[in-house]
Design a protein around this nucleic acid. Sequence first.
DNA 1: CACAGTACCTTGCTAAGCAAGCTACCACAT
DNA 2: ATGTGGTAGCTTGCTTAGCAAGGTACTGTG
Lengths: 102, 102
Amino acid sequence: MNPQFKKGVLELCVLTAVKNKESYGYELVETISKHIKITEGTIYPLLRRLTREGYFETYLKESTEGPPRKYYRLTTKGREFRTALAREWQDLVEGAARLLKG
Amino acid sequence: MNPQFKKGVLELCVLTAVKNKESYGYELVETISKHIKITEGTIYPLLRRLTREGYFETYLKESTEGPPRKYYRLTTKGREFRTALAREWQDLVEGAARLLKG
DNA sequence: CACAGTACCTTGCTAAGCAAGCTACCACAT
DNA sequence: ATGTGGTAGCTTGCTTAGCAAGGTACTGTG
């Protein structure tokens, strides 16, 4: 899969996944990679960036299956951002579809 | 529009536009920007790259409305590449759609 | 104790979009 | 002749995100 295609959409996918269900990083890698080929090296830096930019807040939770998990939760700002991003993505997909239909 | 979203798709759009109709750069900017917001600074370097990589061949044609136009035509290699890219794009859009539906 | 699975993280590279800037041709008006 | 706007091509420098490859550390099982 051309990595260029993914630029930006993953951000939307992560925001949406967390919106639907508060998750930790490793879990997101598993969930998302079922549909789009990605690795940890993509997701972890992305989660940090989105948190730094105020779209996520985090909390730690113990686990019996390994080290503590860092959960991500959407902030209000994150919710608004996600909505705007979803619309932009939709616009692009539709614009491209018109062009590709000929 | 998030510029990251466009990474890669524009390549497919340009290849497809030229496949449907041999065109010159300025014309492609006008055609494509009707559906996706782009500028010359994106298209011209892209056309040069795709030509360098053997997906396009070019020829000049005089114009009464200004300087000569550089037309682009798909090569066989370009045709195959476009088909593969179209499939990858479709896969990504479908993968993202599944994730975004929840 | 070793190993596999879980869970987090970083560094360095690469690629593409694009604002801003440039040159030059043509037609038409001043 | 001078200027202006449309046509047509091009480049430089910046920014950004994906990701391979590497690392740390916890838990339970053989």
